[in-house]
Simulated scan of single mutants.
Amino acid sequence: MSRFPFGGGVSDWTFATVDGINDIDNLAQVVGDIAITFWTAEVGGTQHTDLIGPDGQPTTTITSTPDGVVGGRAVGQIPPLQGPDGVKRMWAQAATGPRALMVTTDPGADDLGLILPPLSVPGTATAPATGRARLYNDTAATLLVAAVRASVGSPPTIDTIIDVNRNGTSIFSTPGNRPVIAAGDYTSGKVVPLDLVLLAPEDYLTADIDTGAGWTHLVVQVLATRAA
């Protein structure tokens, strides 16, 4: 694998909100010299500590540019860095603020991806139901789950919630992010997992039906890209 670059872009800055400026509350103001940590998820998750800073040295945190221009960068800009080996998406947290998703700046890092063979449930099924058919990663590469879509042959009469599991554990750490086929609809639409979900060789996926009724012929398709 290899490390991918992050930061240094037009959207990579640290801000603070200020109240009472020209009678405006929550006015965003650029601030510098803020320590930034990087995580595997928007909430919870694990901190990425294997980083390479703008000086080329290993580090666990990155600091936004302090007052004055440093290395050609303005105050508050997040300098270029390298993430852990093979990681293309990280959740950045400035001090104790909310986290924001950062994606690698390498334009060649994301390929078009491939749609894996579908996880399907023919006929009419009831909920809840635990998926038993396993879809294995039989490639020699680690794959990144880029998106999930659930579709049906005839629409449900009530909202249908689908879960996708990796090795028996949901890929959606926040249950509210699971694919939902609304009553009367045929598809959940493209759902992008907010967590970094990697499929190592021999890992497998299954699909559960958490809630729903009235639909027929469920198909759950997974879009995957190479992780590196």
Rank of each mutant, 00 (worst) to 15 (best):
I78W: 03
G97P: 02
P84N: 04
D55Q: 08
G53H: 12
T49Q: 13
W91P: 08
G83P: 05
T49V: 12
T96E: 13
A95W: 03
T105C: 11
G108W: 10
G68K: 01
K88F: 08
V69W: 02
G86C: 04
G53I: 07
D111T: 14
Q47I: 00
Q57E: 15
P122I: 06
L51G: 06
T49H: 03
T60H: 03
Q93Y: 06
H48G: 03
V75D: 00
L119G: 05
I62V: 14
T65P: 02
L51S: 06
L112P: 01
L112A: 15
T49G: 03
A94M: 01
L81S: 09
V75S: 01
G53C: 13
P118S: 15
I115T: 15
V70W: 01
T63I: 05
Q93K: 14
S64V: 03
A92Y: 07
P58H: 11
D50G: 08
T46W: 04
L119K: 02
P80R: 03
G76I: 02
T105Y: 10
S64A: 07
G83A: 06
P122R: 02
P107Q: 14
P54G: 13
S120T: 15
H48N: 12
S120D: 10
G113N: 08
A100S: 11
L81A: 12
W91F: 13
V103N: 10
T96L: 14
P79V: 00
Q82G: 10
L114N: 13
W91I: 07
G72W: 03
R89G: 01
A92L: 10
G108L: 15
G76N: 02
Q77C: 00
I52E: 09
S120Q: 14
Q82R: 14
T46V: 15
Q93L: 07
A92N: 09
L81Y: 11
L114S: 15
V87R: 07
P117C: 08
A100E: 08
P122T: 05
D55C: 06
P107T: 14
G71R: 04
T60A: 13
D111C: 08
P84F: 04
I62W: 01
D85P: 02
Q82M: 15
T105P: 12
T96F: 12
V69H: 02
P122E: 05
Q57I: 11
L112F: 11
D110M: 10
T65N: 04
L81E: 04
P118G: 11
Q93I: 06
A109K: 07
L114F: 13
T59P: 00
P79C: 00
T105H: 10
P84R: 06
L114C: 08
D106W: 06
D55S: 13
V75N: 02
D67H: 03
G72D: 04
G108V: 10
L112V: 13
G97M: 05
M90H: 11
P54K: 08
D106Y: 03
T63A: 01
K88V: 08
A74Q: 10
Q82W: 13
I78N: 01
A92T: 07
T104I: 06
T63D: 02
P80K: 00
M90L: 15
G53K: 13
A95T: 05
Q57C: 06
Q93T: 05
M90D: 07
T60Q: 13
G76W: 00
A100T: 13
D111Y: 08
L51R: 05
P117F: 04
G108H: 14
G76E: 00
